[in-house]
Design a protein around this nucleic acid. Structure first.
Length: 583
DNA sequence: GCCGTTTTCGGCCCGACTGTTTTCAGTCG
């Protein structure tokens, strides 16, 4: 069984941590960490790059790391890594994950007290053995105990929907303070990543102290991690970490650019700034002379908007969703940034449920909810018969439902359109849940995996290809079936599935539900490059869930999607032509 | 270890906060 990209990325991340603890050259271990991050976001299996001879075209992958990837793919092991593991106990990496403990402290505990595991460290802290080490004290010791406690509370990254709700609640509370002019979300939430490590909030104000005081004493705060004049960090009772920065209006542009990241994007941006004679930080662009000396403060360039920051270094504004150093900077330099899709472009929703299966509203109620949101046409797609728990429709019921859809559709005249479809299960044995003669009578068929998600890669991939090859099936819904934070998606050969989609012209869905966001951006971007049409669908089971389409838009924007790439932007007549042409 | 419209060698972003220090190292993002 070949190692996955993520498994190899994790190995490189461990290598970086171990080298850092070993005190090795900073730029060396940063290279491994950078490579790990890049591999996580790749749209294809690493083996495919090896086969193409394009492995070292991946940014951050040179000869040394490329050879290590090949060794891992061929043998499942890496000599270099095994040697490191023999030197540095792997359990030290767990200790390094404690907030406030870095490589130096981990090494200190190991060297001085022979501590290599979390329980040993906790015991030593409780017995007061850490405070006597150099650079340590009673406070640091207590911080470590708190940090170990927090480790058991925190369960990794937070899904974007929950993070957004938490951010909204905190910002609304802060906005009630008289000193707060404006509050905005930055960080990976602003970039639309499907999961968020911690919240970065930015507030505009000339008077930071009372804001910081209120922030750290909110009732939802479990622990204060730091509190300063411009930056404070807290841990919420939910385990989520929130960082707040307060800056004056005239620095808002540099601050927002800086705190939005990504780190990789910002490093590139600051390198470009340096070449243009500026040192860029969150406060200003500061002119630097050729000897590297900072000029007088009177010559600092302050930016109230992000546009001014990018303009000052000769670039157009880059949308946050694509700030990942994955080609956006080169595109900006060449004037080739994509014109990303926005929520306003969405005039259709091609996947939703009603009371006929497991939705909460009737066909007409769903239609009204869509109309209120500016949607011009929808497809009703309840579950098919296999999905018994969701009250899936038998072939008789689905044909019966069609009559009702037609009736309601006619009542709207040309104002609004309702098509009739189904979200049909792709069965475990690779067959379809309805016979072709039933599918042929439906306007639009979304085919999805709900069962057998843990089957082996070849089997799941073949099921998807079977669906894509069926001429009555128009769209693949939430392809991997993942539920963020609770269920990994099916193991799929994306290259093979994409090839089939190209051949048959099948639409691939970006499911907008924030627990799904499936296809994820890296795959959606690959699909766009291959010319595969995408759909952004809410899969709504209620009216409120239609508002979740903004998350689908974020994901599509992360995939560099322009309106033309997404069928939900097409006028109704064009969409109708398209489904008729498919027969 | 990676990378190249100033480089195949010599660079590699930048600051806030904490706790321990008597001016700074460690950690974080």
């Amino acid at each position: 069984m070949a190692l996955t990209n993520q498994e190899i990325a994790d190995i490189f991340d461990n290598i970086a941590d171990m080298m850092e603890i070993n005190g090795e050259n900073r730029f060396k271990y940063l290279s491994y960490r950078r490579a790990g991050e890049t591999l996580t976001d790749l749209p294809r299996d690493l083996q495919a790059y090896v086969d193409d001879g394009t492995l070292t075209d991946i940014p951050g992958v040179g000869k040394a790391i490329g050879d290590k990837i090949k060794e891992l793919l061929e043998t499942g092991q890496l000599q270099f890594y095994e040697k490191l593991r023999a030197e540095v106990p792997e359990t030290l990496l767990e200790i390094k994950r404690i907030n406030g403990v870095g490589p130096k402290k981990a090494k200190l505990f190991w060297d001085e007290l022979n501590i290599t595991t979390l329980p040993d460290l906790e015991k030593a802290a409780q017995e007061g053995k850490l405070r006597n080490l150099s650079g340590m004290g009673a406070k640091s010791e207590q911080k470590i105990l708190d940090g170990i406690n927090a480790l058991s509370r925190n369960r990794g990254r937070t899904p974007i929907g929950a993070a957004q709700n938490a951010a909204d609640a905190i910002l609304n509370e802060l906005l009630e303070l008289p000193q707060v002019e404006q509050g905005i979300v930055a960080g990976s939430l602003r970039r639309g990543r499907p999961t968020i490590g911690d919240l970065d909030l930015l507030v505009v104000s000339d008077e930071a102290a009372p804001i910081m005081e209120h922030f750290v004493s909110m009732s939802r705060v479990a622990r204060i991690l730091g509190q300063g004049p411009t930056k404070s960090s807290v841990e919420l009772r939910t385990g989520l970490q929130v960082d707040l920065r307060v800056l004056p209006r005239e620095r808002f542009g540099t601050a927002l650019q800086y705190f939005t990241g990504s780190q990789a994007h910002n490093i590139r941006i600051r390198e470009i700034a340096l070449k243009q004679g500026y040192s860029l930080n969150e406060h200003a662009l500061r002119p630097v002379d050729s000897d590297g000396n900072m000029k007088d403060e009177s010559e600092y360039l302050y930016c109230a908007t992000e546009e001014e920051v990018y303009e000052a270094i000769g670039l157009p504004w880059i949308p946050p969703e694509i700030r990942e150093d994955q080609g956006e900077i080169e595109a900006a330099q060449q004037g080739k940034l994509p014109h990303l899709i926005t929520t306003d472009h969405l005039i259709a929703d091609l996947h939703m449920h009603t009371t006929a299966s497991d939705g909460t509203l009737t066909i007409r109620e769903m239609a009204e909810a869509a109309r209120e949101r500016g949607i011009q046409y929808i497809v009703i797609t309840d579950h098919s018969q296999r999905n018994i728990i969701a009250n899936g429709l038998s072939t008789e019921r689905v044909l019966e439902q069609q009559k009702e859809v037609r009736q309601i559709d006619e009542s709207y005249g040309d104002d609004f359109h309702i098509l009739h479809g189904i979200e049909m299960d792709i069965l475990e044995d690779g067959s379809m849940d309805y016979p072709d003669e039933v599918l042929a009578q439906l306007d639009f068929v979304v085919a999805s995996l709900h069962f057998g998600l843990t089957q082996d890669r070849a089997t799941v991939t073949q099921r998807l290809i079977n669906a894509i090859s069926n001429p009555h099936i128009d769209c693949i819904g939430h392809m991997t079936g993942r539920l963020i934070g609770s269920r990994p998606g099916a193991d799929i050969d994306f290259d093979a599935v994409f090839s089939a989609a190209v051949e048959h012209g099948t639409i691939l869905e970006i499911n907008a539900n924030p627990m799904r966001l499936d296809l994820d951006a890296q795959y959606a971007r690959r699909a766009i490059e291959l010319g595969i049409p995408l759909a952004i669908n809410t899969d709504a089971h209620s009216a409120n869930q239609m508002d979740l389409r903004s998350y689908g838009i974020l994901t599509a924007r992360r995939a560099w999607a322009e309106p033309e790439n997404v069928v939900n932007t097409w006028p109704f007549a064009r969409f109708l032509d398209w489904i008729r042409a498919r027969g």
